[in-house]
Amino acid sequence: MSADDQRLIAECLQGNTAAFGVLVRRYQERLYHSVYRLVENAEDAQDVVQEAFLNAYQSLDGFKGDSRFFTWLYRIAVNTAISFKRKHRALVHLETQNNGEYALEPLDPSAASRPEHALEQAEQQMRVRQALARLSPEHRAVLVLKEIEGQKYETMAEILQVPIGTIRSRLHRARLELRELLEKSEQKE
C-alpha cells in the first residue's frame, strides 16, 4: 500500500471526511470501469461504485493494510456488483439488448481511416460484450479481473476470497463458456 493511501486512511479514521474524498477521486474511474463490465449499465455501475465507497468508508477501521487499498476496495466493489447482479438477474436492460453502448461510446477515431476494419472491430466487440453479459456473475468477475484488470491468480483469490484452485478452474470454465457463446454468435451470422 502506498504511503499516501495510508496517510489518507489515517486521516479518515480521525474523522477527516475530505481525505476520503481524495481516495474516491483517485480510484473511482478504475473501479467504475470494472464494475461497468460486471453490471453492463452505466447508472447501475455508478450506484454500485457509490455503494462500494460507502461500505468501504464504514469498514475502514477494519482495513489492516495487509493488501493494497485498491485490492481491498476492489473486493468490496466486486462483491457489491455480484450481489447486485444476483438480485437483478431477471432484469434485462434495453441498453444491452439494443447494443446502445455504441451510441454512448464512440469508437477510436483513428479507426475511421479503415471503415471496414472499424465495422469488423465494432461487430467483434459487440459479440464479446454480449457473450460476457451472458456469463454468470462469478465467471464474468474472474474474466474481468484477469483480462480487464490484469490481476494475477493470487490477487484474484484475495479479492474474491476463494482458493487459487477455484480461481484457476473458474477461469478455465469461463473461457470455454465464452468461446462457446462466441462460436454460436459467429455461426448465426
Binding site: 476520503f20 474524498g21 474516491v24 473511482q28 457509490q50 465507497f53 483480462e147 480487464i148
Partner: peptide, 23 residues
C-alpha cells in the same frame, strides 16, 4: 483472440464525479 478482444473492449468514462455524492 478472446482474451485480446476482452482486453481491448472500450473503457467507458465515468459520467459524473462521484466524490461529491459519496461525501
Amino acid at each position: 483472440a478472446d482474451a485480446h478482444a476482452l482486453r481491448h473492449l472500450p473503457r467507458p468514462p465515468l459520467p459524473t464525479d462521484l466524490t461529491e455524492p459519496v461525501l
